[in-house]
Each structure stands twice: as C-alpha cells, then as structure tokens.
C-alpha cells in the first residue's frame, strides 16, 4: 500500500493535503508516505510554511486597508464636525469638552486654523461696515422721544427758553439805555447845559438827538 503512491504523486497532492481537501483514504496515504520519505517531508514543510506566510501577509494587507479606509472616513467626518462647530466655537458658545476637541483638531491640522481666521476676518469687515452705517445717522432723536414719552409738545421747552431769552434781552436793552444816559448826561452837563435845558424831552430818545447835536 505504501509503495503504491509515488513521490511524484505526493508532490502534486501536497497542496490539497495541507488544506485537508483530499478524501480520507488519500489523506492517509499521503500521511504515511510523508512519514517514511524525508525528501517529501521536507517539501511538505517548506510548502506549508510558504502558504501560511502568504496567508498571513494577505490577512495583514486586508486589515491595513480596512484600517486606512476607516481612518480616512473618520477624518472627513471629523472635519465636517469641525466645520459645523466652528461658528459656535468662534462665538464661544460650545460646551467645554467640544471646544477642547476643536482646539486639539486645530493643533493636529494647522490648515484648519485658516477657516477660523476667515471667520475672524468676516467678523472684522462686518464691524467696520457697522461703524460706517452708524455714522450715517446724523439726527439726534433723544429730545423728541423724551418729549413724546412725557406727552408734551416738543416746542414747550423752546417756548420757555424763547420767553426767557426775550425777557433777558429786554432787560439788557433797558440797562444799556440807562447806562448810556450817564456819559451823555455828563457831557451835556459839562458842555452845553443851556442846550439841555431848552429840550423838553426827558426820555432816552432825546439822547440821540442831543448826541448828534453835540457832535455838530
């Protein structure tokens, strides 16, 4: 029985033998042959090693690509998360743990910082525009609104001030007229008492006439 299987046959069957794909009888024949034939046994061990190495390498490769794929997907997701959270991060509205992860992400990918800078620039130009718009308002509504709240006529205060102003003005005019009397009166006394006596007027209008007379 053992002689019935040759080394050549065993060599061709080895691959199947390693995978246990022979029928039990043949399996037994090959096994028995390997036990007695050192040449075939050596071949068998070499082939087994080669196959197992290849299989391991293939497994590793598959695992590697799977991990890589997973890693890349994770990155895109991470970036999307980063991008959606960026606005809230800029406004300081993120919970602490999320803002820490945002910071970590920006340390990991320095390019991500550019997004944040862009947001900051947007904020800056909007605010400069706001200042320009604020400047275009030249009116002051404070007084009119205060009066509206008080339920008064906005001109109410103006009227009072006008009255006061006119009153003060009249007093000043009177005062100037009275004070103007004195020097003219003095000159009258000094220079022409006679002329003064001839005049009937006592009030101020006369002073102008008197003055003009004196000038002549």
């Amino acid at each position: 029985m053992t002689q019935s299987i040759t080394c050549k046959k065993v060599t061709s069957l080895l691959a199947l033998y390693i995978d246990n794909k022979l029928d039990p009888r043949m399996q037994l024949f090959v096994k028995q042959h390997l036990e007695i034939c050192p040449y075939c046994h050596k071949k068998y061990i070499m082939l087994k090693q080669l196959i197992s190495e290849l299989r391991n390498a293939y497994k590793d490769m598959i695992q590697d690509t799977a991990a890589e794929e997973k890693h890349r997907q994770f990155n895109i997701k991470e970036y999307e998360k980063f991008h959606t959270n960026l606005s809230a991060y800029f406004d300081n509205e993120l919970p602490l743990n999320e803002s820490v992860s945002m910071k970590k992400y920006m340390i990991k990918f320095p390019n991500a910082r550019k997004d944040l800078e862009e947001m900051y620039n947007l904020h800056k130009i909007i605010n400069s525009s706001l200042l320009c718009v604020k400047k275009t308002l030249n009116e002051d509504y404070s007084k009119t609104i205060c009066y509206r709240v008080l339920g008064k006529n906005p001109d109410f205060k103006k009227q009072i001030t006008l009255k006061i102003a006119s009153f003060v003005g009249i007093i000043i005019m009177l005062a100037t007229l009275i004070t103007a009397n004195i020097p003219i009166g003095k000159t009258v006394k000094e220079k022409s008492i006679k002329l003064f006596k001839k005049t009937i007027y006592v009030h101020s209008p006369i002073n102008h006439e008197l003055a003009s007379d004196l000038m002549q």
């Binding site: 706001l130 718009v133 275009t136």
Partner: peptide, 22 residues
C-alpha cells in the same frame, strides 16, 4: 430721570438705526 433717558437714547440710537439698516 429724563436726562438719564435722554443720554440713554443718545447712546443707543445709532445702534438701533444700524440694526434696521441691516
């Protein structure tokens, strides 16, 4: 205190104007 109210309006009016403007 209407002087306070007046001052408050003075300070806020540009802001309000800008808000409506945008």
């Amino acid at each position: 205190d209407y002087h306070a109210l007046e001052e408050l309006i003075k300070r806020e009016q540009k802001n309000v104007y800008a808000s409506f403007y945008y």
